[in-house]
Design a protein around this nucleic acid. Sequence first.
DNA 1: TCATTAAATTGTT
DNA 2: AACAATTTAATGA
Length: 246
Amino acid sequence: MNERMVSGLAALRSRSRAPRADELKGVPWLAVLEPAHARRVLDDLRVVEVQAGEVVCRVGRAPSFWLGVLDGLLKMSNDTALGIPITFTGIPPGGWFGEGTLLKREPYRYNILALRRSLVAGLTVGTFDWLLDHSFAFNRFVMLQLNERLGQFIGAREIDRLTQPDQRVARSLAALFHPTLYPGVGRLLRITQHELGYLVGLSRQRVNRSLTTLQAQGVIVVEYGGVRVLDLQRLRLYGAQGQTPS
DNA sequence: TCATTAAATTGTT
DNA sequence: AACAATTTAATGA
């Protein structure tokens, strides 16, 4: 409803800038590269600030960037033309996405929009391919990421079937705290209860109740504008068989 | 640095 | 959807 004429990808071409040194610390795979490879990346990497509600990439567009979240929060959905949104996934800081479509040279299969003002980084497809051809470390990173994401999507389908709000909130939160996919999150996830409700598909009020419940059980701590995880394992397994909600 | 104000977020109905 | 309470961010002295 609040879409711009300029998509985020076009914005990455037009109003992007080079990343600052402190922003590069939010690029987890940069540290694994050899100096020569990293230099080429630094030459290519661009960042752009997107506003809340702005579309970063849209289904059907030809992929031209590998994209990462340096700050903020994005929402990925694969809602089809039939109007049935199947899977929602939040992408917090440290998350990189789009490698699947880049590898297959297919159009994007997802809509990505910013839930809040965010800083998005982009690596051009040419440099992405070049890294795959030249860096074992980069290949390992991408392979690991694809594997982890596969597990997360399977988990997302289970979340869709869960009926208990507390379970849905717990699992969705746990997915956002994924240390490999989203290393930028750490133990404190910056997300409002409104945003979480939008991701999980619940009202803000219901999310608030679930968060209160989870906090009472010592799994998380609810903070202003964020959630701190105390026990990621229990958050992941919340409501599963054999789990005693103490 | 501190006080004031506006805006955002939370907790509740 | 609406309300009050709380927290943060911004502003200026």
